[in-house]
């Protein structure tokens, strides 16, 4: 088991939802979980700040939600399957969220996928960028 968690850190642009992230993000993710109920989605939409105050999240986590900054939410312990519920509440497709996280316009991201997706070459390793 030694080195299990460390081994993932060499993979570029990727956050593995391990114990550390899960502890950091527990309340952020549980907030997302609450959006599975229609009445909670309505309450969140009516007053986002007030709704977020009802969860014991950090101010940084609340701000990241308000900003819809998904990469920041992931850095603060969010897990994408939980965060996707914010996107669904906003009425966006998952592909829209994915394009936001990559910093590409949605049509460009979509074209990349149709052309076969992001290539693996050059995206395997931070330490060996040519692999």
């Amino acid at each position: 088991m030694a080195g299990y968690n460390e081994a993932f850190r060499d993979i570029p642009g990727t956050t593995v939802f391990d114990a550390t992230q899960s502890r950091l993000g527990y309340h952020l993710n549980q907030f997302c979980m609450s959006l599975m109920k229609a009445e909670n989605r309505a309450a969140f939409k009516a007053d986002e700040r007030a709704y977020l105050e009802t969860f014991p999240m950090t101010p940084e986590q609340r701000q990241a939600v308000l900003d819809r900054d998904y990469n920041r939410m992931i850095a603060l312990g969010g897990n994408i399957y939980f965060l996707a519920k914010i996107g669904a509440t906003d009425g966006f497709s998952f592909q829209n969220l994915a394009s936001k996280m990559t910093g590409m316009p949605e049509d460009e991201y979509k074209a990349m996928m149709v052309a076969g997706g992001r290539p693996i070459r050059g995206n395997r390793s931070k330490s060996d960028k040519d692999s």
């Binding site: 990469n71 996280m101 910093g103 995206n123």
Partner: peptide, 17 residues
């Protein structure tokens, strides 16, 4: 099969794998 839904590497596909 291959897919990544999170972060800057989202959209990764590896046909060979």
């Amino acid at each position: 099969m291959s897919h990544q839904l999170q972060g800057p590497r989202a959209g990764l596909i590896n046909r060979e794998f």
